[in-house]
Amino acid sequence: MTVPWRLRLNPILCTGHALCAELLPEVIVLDEWGYPILSPVPDELLSLARRAVADCPTLALAIEPAP
C-alpha cells in the first residue's frame, strides 16, 4: 500500500478541539493533554483526511504530498 499523503500540523494554531481525531481515529490519536499525534494517511482515508483539514476550527491542519 502506498502512502503518498501526509498531514501536517501547525502546533501554534492547534488548540486541541480534537475534531480531527474524531474524524480520523486511524491516523490521529490524542496525547494526554488532548493534542493530536499524526501518522501517515493511507489512500482510503484521504477524503476523510481532507474533511479533517477543512473542519479544523483553527485551521491548524494541512495535507500535503509526503516527501
Partner: peptide
C-alpha cells in the same frame, strides 16, 4: 456528540 457533528 462528536464535535464534527456539531460543526457539520
Amino acid at each position: 456528540v462528536p464535535r464534527f457533528v456539531i460543526a457539520g
